[in-house]
Design a protein around this nucleic acid. Structure first.
Lengths: 205, 205
DNA sequence: TTATTTTTTTGAACAACGTTCATTAGTTTG
DNA sequence: CAAACTAATGAACGTTGTTCAAAAAAATAA
């Protein structure tokens, strides 16, 4: 029985090794410039081996997108020590945007690249657990704000989605080079400046 | 002199024909599933001819992204008959989101796909005129709102960028399948519901 | 018209991609 | 030690974007 155990462990290890190699190359030279052959080379295995452990490229991209959500979740943990939900909400946006900018390739994979969602579609997974979890962290915080009397006259889910939209939209425009295109007067700070405009607005609600 | 003129005209016509074929295929089967060979087949020319008229695939994608901005601009024209800037701003968002959802492949190309910006980078074009123009339409309207006494204590450019972010972010999440993933209670209307939350908020400013 | 030059179009060929699968190498079991 | 099984391999396939010598067509000159 122990040999079978070790084999299962080896399989998991090699799977993890492939993901680690893939992630390294993604961060180094971008997702689109990374090929299966690159990944195989990086960890000194053949292309064929990669396909033994992963159905296709989408499967690799999906698993790395999941690692991204673990990392984002990790950077969120300290937020849950903040008692005041409004304060937590404000900082949550900062953390989210910071993550997006400092890990733009990973953020792109998590929220823009089509592969992870295509993988979920064509597998027995029924839900985007990674996204649901992160969105719930936001929704719960907004709900607590409402319990404390903020956001009167607003609906929880649409409001939470709109807040997600603000931060995501601005990060997205930055990552996909659209902010660079319009030449703001203060391009270095436009993201945070934009977010602070949003904070000023919800402050009063 | 007239033969030279006709030749120049013919060149322009064939260039337009290629773009027309490319656009048709993009809308039919998506940008990623459309190949240069597909485009050449569609208009009964050879692959080589496409490369006589366009440097590479990025050049085609860029030119179609420009057509997209013309279409978006067209749908904006009737907005400028609206006198009240706040009213115009509200409707501008509706038009923008409507365009994004009804022309999602085109919207994606305009604001998410990397190719058009890469083309601008590697060409003598110094600015993203298409994006600048559209952003200015928003910025000017926000400026008029401020002149009328709205948005006190806010800065024009960051505020305009934030508003762009809200609508873009929500459309983006929808187009890249992330709203589908989180299973909202009312998925059919979440985009407009989210936008109306935003309208409720800026109403008071 | 006919010959020559110029322009336009062509598609075979190339390198690189994701993916497959018969074959080989290695390990475990009887 | 041999048989049975498992894991790893890399050549090969079909497609992709792209190139470029050659062919076809058109314009010009005689």
């Amino acid at each position: 029985m122990s040999t079978a155990d070790r084999k299962a462990r080896d399989k998991e290890n090699l799977k993890a090794l492939i993901l680690q190699g893939a992630k390294k190359l993604f961060l180094e030279k971008g997702i689109e410039q990374t090929t299966i052959r690159n990944i195989a080379d990086e960890i000194d295995y053949s292309v064929g081996t990669v396909y033994v452990y992963f159905k296709d490229k989408n499967a690799i991209l999906h698993d790395i997108h999941t690692i991204g959500f673990q990392e984002l979740g990790g950077s969120f943990t300290e937020l849950f020590t903040i008692e005041d939900p409004m304060d937590r909400l404000r900082k949550m946006g900062i953390f989210y945007m910071k993550f997006a900018i400092e890990n733009s390739e990973m953020y792109d994979l998590m929220f823009n690249v089509k592969a992870p969602m295509e993988f979920i579609e064509h597998s027995e997974k029924e839900e985007w657990n990674e996204g649901v979890g992160t969105f719930n962290a936001l929704k719960n915080t907004v709900a607590q704000c409402m319990e404390k009397g903020h956001f009167k006259g607003h609906s929880l889910e649409p409001l939470s989605f709109m807040i997600w939209g603000v931060v995501h939209g601005m990060c997205c425009l930055e990552i996909r080079q659209r902010t660079k295109g319009v030449k703001f007067s203060k391009p270095e700070t436009i993201l945070m400046d934009g977010y602070h405009e949003f904070l000023k607005i919800i402050e009063k609600l």
